[in-house]
Design a protein around this nucleic acid. Structure first.
Lengths: 329, 329
DNA sequence: TCGGGGAATGAAAGCGATTGCATGGATTCT
DNA sequence: AGAATCCATGCAATCGCTTTCATTCCCCGA
């Protein structure tokens, strides 16, 4: 026999389909004995409501989409987990797609998801503002780590944490710094660079800007090599992955960290605690970011056409072993 | 005005809804001019077919589910990417859930996904065979890295690659080995341990078994500490994450790798190339695994009730910097 | 005793697509 | 020229569920 429906159950219990539906969605409208009987029959038949049918009439897919620019970047798994967990708590499933670094794929995916989800979260979008705006037209959408006036956004602001990082190095005697810039298309990269520049200027210390480098391990090695061309003893890497590359490059060349150079990363991915030396970095509040994004999205879904929301969550500086006193020279 | 449907388009073009539907699904049945007109109107109105409605009548969700035991384990991102990519190529979307290490969550998620997907892939399941069998009853399902007679499975078999790893160490003069076992609930762990035992016995070398350890960085550090209690110069870690922990612990205690001890990991996660020293390990054919899993699943979906398939893909040994000649003693 | 009100249930109308069958006009064959 | 074909299209049923409105029945107050 085929898949059980509310009708199978209705028939079996001698009630109408409407009652079965109510037993599930508005149990208080159904008398106790009938409800119990229905539930029993449902369990027995292994009934599962068809979400397609429900979605068709309610107009809700109970699903949200998450587009990440590159799932292999260690930044994302924690985010994915937070988003999925929150979505589930709100009764929604998560549809995930990986844009594999391509801006075009990003907007194509938004289009593809349109008909299957109630809304989408785009994490670290690479696309142009115009493309994003266009792609999200008429679809609840929140951007992660990319502000845009007409779309909701949740961003992690590391500005003040990076100031702290600077101060931390300064206190350790460092006076000459290098900024290893991240990809120019990344809003986060621009913002971080800006924060560090501002700090350096305010502090009146020397800052050499290098890059941009790709946000990969390899990019980090290149950055490490470039760093060694300078006399800077304190280096700000764009993110942890880059920082790890730097560390590897320095280690490979026999340069001691933090003995000879101090390196700070950003994001505090799992990797950061794992490498040797463990990375001094800026912790992004992943769980909060993911949770907030889902909540904002949910609000957008429930009140379509509402004003976009913009949430800013600060990162926090955390000192570990990749930074230390400036070597006596 | 509300969301466009085939009726809006039909009306606008002076044709029936059926024709519009055909224009999309069976274009060869619609005359050229009409088809063009419909397409134009669709584009203009920003029409997107409702997948709920289509799903209701076709009985297909065009979606597959992927349940991973722990998305933060670096093993998974590559797999997720491969699965998503393949699913997309087959016209399906990917619904992802993270069981967060819980066996109970695993089966609960299968149940929850039932009504929204055409089938599910369960990666590295932690649940008991009986629970899995029960959860997958009547739902196309393929297991990844866990064989089970009545369910399809795709597994990565590292047995022969681990033999290679052993030989590699042996050639480098190692004669005393440690096996740092992984979680006892993991089929992969059991299988790997078995392979190594077999090799050691065959080779007639000494093998000390330690563990089980959790498959985390911390677990690896413990394993590292345990390793140092022994005289073994060659260590087989359960996986790369564990191996990284071992490396960190040894580094922390000033033990040189590969100078004093050689360590081999397993899986070849991104991490493996990243750490210092880079990890000698066994590469799992991630892309193949993901792709094959989706293909097998698709077959199951198309021919429900067909016999389960079992695919076995071999890992391949790769030597890097965490192994080397046994220190002269 | 009778009417009003509330609780439990049923009937039926969609939701937006797909699809088998029917139809009508143009084309082709004899 | 009349019949047989075929192509493009329309009609209408259907998928499984939710939800409005109506109905029935029972209890209570006057």
């Amino acid at each position: 026999m085929s898949k059980p429906t509310i009708y199978s159950i209705a028939q079996r219990c001698g009630v109408s389909a409407a009652t079965v539906s109510r037993a599930f969605n508005r149990p208080e409208l159904v008398s106790e004995p009938v409800r119990k009987q229905i539930m029993a029959a449902a369990r027995e038949l292994g009934y599962q409501p068809s979400s397609a049918a429900r979605g068709l009439v309610t107009g809700r897919a109970e699903t949200i989409g998450l587009i990440v620019s590159d799932i292999t970047n260690p930044f994302f798994p924690l985010l994915v987990r937070a988003v999925q967990r929150t979505a589930e708590r709100m009764g929604s499933a998560l549809m995930l797609v990986d844009a594999e670094e391509s801006a075009a794929a990003e907007v194509a995916h938004v289009a593809r998801l349109r008909s299957r989800v109630d809304g989408v979260i785009v994490a670290s979008p690479r696309s142009s503002s115009a493309a994003l705006r266009e792609a999200a037209r008429g679809l609840p959408c929140v951007l992660l780590n990319r502000p845009l006036r007409d779309l909701s956004s949740v961003i992690c602001d590391n500005t003040s944490a990076l100031f702290d990082a600077g101060e931390h190095l300064y206190k350790h005697g460092h006076r000459s710094f290098a900024l290893l810039a991240g990809p120019s298309a990344s809003w986060a990269a621009a913002r971080r660079s800006q924060a560090i520049r501002r700090w350096a200027r305010g502090r009146g210390v020397e800052l050499t800007e290098l890059g941009p480098f790709r946000a990969t391990f390899k990019g980090g090695r290149q950055a490490g090599a470039a760093l060694l061309e300078t006399a800077a003893t304190g280096a700000f890497a764009f993110d942890d992955l880059t920082a790890c590359g730097v560390l590897a490059e320095l280690a490979g060349r026999g340069v001691a960290v933090p003995g000879e150079r101090s390196v700070v990363g950003c994001d505090d991915v799992l990797l950061a605690k794992t490498v040797t030396p463990s990375l001094t970095t800026v912790t992004a509040p992943m769980d909060d970011l993911g949770e907030t994004a889902v909540q904002v999205l949910t609000r957008q879904i429930e009140a379509p056409g509402g004003a976009p929301e913009h949430v800013r969550l600060p990162g926090v500086f955390v000192a570990r072993d990749s930074t230390g006193p400036r070597s006596g020279s």
